[in-house]
Design a protein around this nucleic acid. Structure first.
Lengths: 205, 205
DNA sequence: GTCTATACGGGGATAGAC
DNA sequence: GTCTATCCCCGTATAGAC
């Protein structure tokens, strides 16, 4: 599966990834990809046949990397609270470390996300999941008082949204609310703590 | 300012809005816009000179509509709790009613959002705001126990993210978690209630 | 204002030499 | 494998008739 690539192929993939993530599928130019890879257009086609094939290759690769990380982050241990803490910690590291990729995937989702769903299903099987592991844990978990967690699906959506929002809205946020600096490491720490506090209030009832 | 448009111009704008929101700036085709407007390409250029100008017109118009709604939703009255309730109610109606536009704006934000920031600043002045009104209220507001609201910026981010996330992630969500149906009116109600409950736990401390 | 016809350039893709 | 040169379509834009 990894089919180890030669130097040139690797450089093409890297350049293509950069350009596609920046400009989008239709905004990307083969010329620019070639330039950044330090080769010419003909060689691009020699390696990847067409723009759409190159795009699919890049997209699948990026989506797999992202989903692997996210799904792994969603695997939590026996203790619910610390498990959720761990999820937030790992998940936000991924999001904060790949803001361009996140926004790109969000745009792709908008187009229906069939290809993405396919890749995701694949990852599910690969990892042996029947459904979203984090959500499963929330559905069977108990609050501090021993009751089932209320509205686990809603809680799940809230967690995801809280983690992701500052990073997809960042360029606008920093202009409207200059005090917020999502690119600052301190911000990431503060954000995690805030979300963990939210988890506490949700579990302690 | 509204400079009332004639029939044809209006149809062009509508068609262009649809196409740009669906395909993005570079993915959109003048031919498709012309077709949907029931005219030919030459007439497009007669009215709007170039694709980029047409795009800017559409973008500015949509951004203004969206920002007006959002900023209005962020104006809350004297009572903090009911004010926040009202914000969630109005804001989520906007988001749920314009998912394509939301995703589109998110993509534009990714590109730096300079033009958007310009438009937003304009709206701020127009409405007489110094800063985000909702955030201002959170900064000066008190919890039930009379203390300042902790981390108002973080709380603000959480609110925004909770409201928006289900609708930008929808196509993927519905495949991974089929029980979630963001397009269902019942979902919208449930989501609002959940977020309002979150507001309660945050204020009642 | 609205059309047909066409110019022009950009960008994906290929041929063919090395 | 890598290059140069070239093809050719598609998409933007314009000319000019009505």
């Amino acid at each position: 599966m990894p089919e180890l690539q030669n130097e040139t192929e690797q450089q093409i993939i890297e350049a293509a990834t950069d350009v596609f993530l920046e400009k989008g599928k239709s905004g990307a130019r083969m010329q620019e990809i070639a330039d950044r890879a330090g080769i010419n257009k003909a060689l691009l086609h020699y390696y990847f046949r067409s723009k759409i094939l190159l795009y699919q290759r890049v997209f699948a690769s990026q989506a797999k990397i992202l989903f692997s990380g996210m799904l792994e982050a969603m695997v939590v241990g026996q203790d619910l609270r610390s498990g959720l803490y761990g999820f937030v910690d790992r998940y936000m590291d991924i999001v904060a470390g790949n803001p361009r990729l996140i926004s790109f995937i969000m745009w792709e989702i908008r187009e229906g996300g069939e290809e993405m769903s396919r890749i995701l299903k694949e990852k599910f099987q690969e990892m042996g999941f029947q459904s979203v592991p984090l959500l499963e844990v929330l559905r069977t978990g108990k609050t501090t008082s021993g009751n089932p967690i209320p509205n686990p699906e809603q809680f799940f959506l809230s967690l995801m949204g809280m983690c992701i929002y500052p990073f997809i809205a960042r360029p606008l946020l920093t202009r409207v609310v200059p005090e917020l600096r999502p690119e600052d490491p301190d911000f990431l720490t503060a954000r995690k703590q805030h979300i963990m506090a939210f988890i506490d209030t949700y579990l302690d009832r």
